[in-house]
Design a protein around this nucleic acid. Structure first.
Length: 553
RNA sequence: UGGGUCGUCGCCAAGUGGUAAGGCACCGGGUUUUGAUCUCGGCAUUCGUAGGUUCGAACCCUACCGACCCAGCCA
């Protein structure tokens, strides 16, 4: 573990002080997703914050599915979310929790509110309720049903529970303040009728608590001390506290809000991501270009890099958009330290070594990583016919070009220095082969005549190699803020976000490597096999991220 | 004058009365069998603006400007 000298963020400071001042004995947090979609990079921040704080301060973090709206939810998402959290490297405390576990208690609390004349059954329909709520600048008006007796409300609420009313017929509302400048306090609805089967409770209920009525109480039941959520819930806090203060809850959690994570050149709205899937712009929710956790996982990002990125981007109440270069730095840093090196030629060009015996093959051995001995060694077959990348050869070039040029020398990575003599072309003038010579005794040495090669290029033996497909990814959008200011993100799609290269040739060892290990294909970037398309006899690699490239800058 | 929140380098972000941390990005030098890595150096006289208080202000006060959030029987 490296020493972390990062200053505490504002939430951590609050927790630290509460612990020091014995405001709480130990810290309990929770990550509370609604199981209605896949997790994305923004959720990862909440996960890292909640689980991270529990870890840092020796507390616990629950996973609680906030499943109060059966119509939008599905068990499929429950499982996917659990997978993502585990993959990110976190384990929730005890069993997975569901807000639906507390439906009985929540119902009892609703009855308690009615008995105390603090809630009433309202028959206003949706439109009428909206109209009576007033506007941002004008007060609302009380519902004509607000003055029903406790007995009548009790009876009506029981009828709601028994399914005697149709959906939308009535709701249970708090007696708030229809003149409050905070819209959330204008008689908020705490129970509504939903005749839908629930993924956890089946058909037991046909009335469901609202977020506001369920969240704080769920926190209280679980002994959550610090209920950390995003900024848009800030105005719900008075309501959150009202329930905690007016109900016989077992503990008193406190809500704190932080700014959600946004990254440029992408979108995280569920609706917009779904559009990319539905329109076939990407192949699934876990397409390697998607900002979903599963997409990033498939792309080849590591959990450590994502955690590091989130840690580095900080926690505050300022709304900001983090530059994607910060994410790219985090994954490059991790993979530079941990990825085994290999050579893979993406766009092959044949090179014939005219002074190397035609029938000779030697096996060159090189390190799996420049500084990690634990990553072992590699064996590279070498013969008179090799493949290099088309971009690494030019018939003539200025001195900026440090690769193979006719009459000039270059180093074959991990092998000899060669000098090019001639370019062979087809009838269309395309270069199809390069004739070159090995400079004697340059394996591990510089040329004896003192003329050092300018650059180093990667290569692979022309016959003893592994064929593969390589998928190069670029950002999905050309606009740094694809959906800002109501813009249509579909208008700024990057048509070149995926480039598929076939007939790529990788070094021999790739064929037998574990399909989950990440490689640095030297001079190209970091790659991992695609979990959807790669097969043992037909390898498909995703480029996680290119190497930093300062040539020409 | 509906309420709430937020404004520190291109981006993120420390700092909360004692004279602007750090990271990313960017720009230079060095090393290098990856144009990578590594390494060295540069990069806010200034903290939304304008006043005020103070020996001293990004931090306190006042006014103004700007951005965002709230009118779901979504979370």
């Amino acid at each position: 573990m490296t020493e972390n000298t990062r200053p505490l963020n504002f939430v951590e400071k609050i927790v630290k002080e509460d612990l020091e001042n014995k405001v709480v004995q130990s810290v309990q947090t929770r990550f509370p997703p609604e199981p209605n979609g896949y997790l994305h990079i923004g959720h990862a921040k909440s996960i890292c914050l909640n689980f991270g704080i529990a870890q840092t301060f020796g507390g616990h973090c629950n996973l609680r599915f906030d499943d109060t709206n059966p119509e939008k939810e599905d068990i499929e998402y429950v499982e996917a979310i659990k997978d993502d959290i585990r993959w990110l490297g976190y384990q929730w405390s005890g069993e997975v929790k569901f807000t639906s576990n507390y439906f009985d208690q929540l119902h009892a609390w609703a009855v308690e509110l009615i008995e105390n004349d603090k809630a009433y059954v309202d028959d206003l329909d949706k439109d009428a309720a909206r109209a009576s709520r007033g506007t941002l600048k004008e007060s609302g008006t009380n519902s004509p049903y607000r003055s029903r007796s406790v007995e009548e409300n009790l009876a009506l609420f029981e009828k709601m529970r028994l399914g005697e009313f149709d959906e939308g017929h009535c709701t249970l509302r708090i007696k708030g303040d229809m003149a409050s400048p905070n819209m959330h306090l204008r008689d908020p609805i705490i129970y509504r009728i939903r005749k839908a089967s629930h993924h956890q409770t089946g058909d037991k209920w046909c009335i469901y608590p609202s977020y506001d009525f369920a969240h704080g109480q769920g926190d209280a039941i679980e002994g959550v001390t610090h209920s950390i959520c995003t900024l848009e819930f800030e105005e719900h806090r008075p309501l959150y506290n009202w329930f905690i203060d007016n109900l016989s809850v077992p503990s008193k959690p406190v809500q704190y809000e932080f700014s959600r994570l946004e990254v440029n050149y992408t979108v995280t709205s569920k609706r917009k991501l779904k559009q990319l899937v539905d329109d076939g712009i990407v192949d699934a929710w876990n397409d390697p270009r998607m900002p979903t956790i599963s997409g990033m996982r498939r792309r080849g990002f590591t959990a450590a890099a994502i955690r590091e990125f989130i840690d580095k981007s900080g926690v505050s109440r300022n709304k900001g958009v983090v530059d994607v270069s910060m994410l790219e730095f985090a994954i490059r840093e991790d993979l530079n330290n941990n990825a085994t090196r290999a050579m893979c030629v993406l766009r092959p060009l044949k090179v014939t070594l005219t002074n190397y015996p035609e029938d000779k093959t030697e096996i060159l051995t090189t390190a799996g990583h420049p500084s990690r001995e634990d990553l072992g060694t590699r064996e590279l077959p070498f013969s008179n016919t090799l493949l290099i990348d088309q971009d690494d050869f030019r018939e003539e070039a200025n001195k900026q070009f440090k690769r193979l040029v006719i009459g000039k020398r270059t180093r074959l990575r991990n092998a000899y220095v060669i000098e090019a003599d001639e370019a062979i072309k087809d009838t269309d003038g395309n270069i199809i082969e390069v004739k070159a010579r090995i400079i004697e005794n340059t394996l591990g040495n510089n040329p004896e005549d003192g003329i050092k090669p300018k650059g180093v290029i990667h290569w692979v033996d022309a016959t003893d190699n592994v064929d593969c497909e390589v998928r190069l990814y670029d950002r999905l959008f050309n606009d740094p803020a694809p959906d800002a200011g109501g813009k249509d993100h579909m208008q700024s799609l990057n048509p070149n976000s995926l480039e598929i290269l076939n007939g790529c040739k990788g070094e021999k060892g790739l064929a037998t490597a574990d399909n989950r290990i990440r490689f640095q294909f030297e001079r190209e970037g970091y790659f991992v096999q695609d979990s959807r398309y790669s097969k043992p006899d037909a390898l498909v690699y995703n480029r996680v991220i290119s190497l930093r490239d300062t040539w020409g800058k």
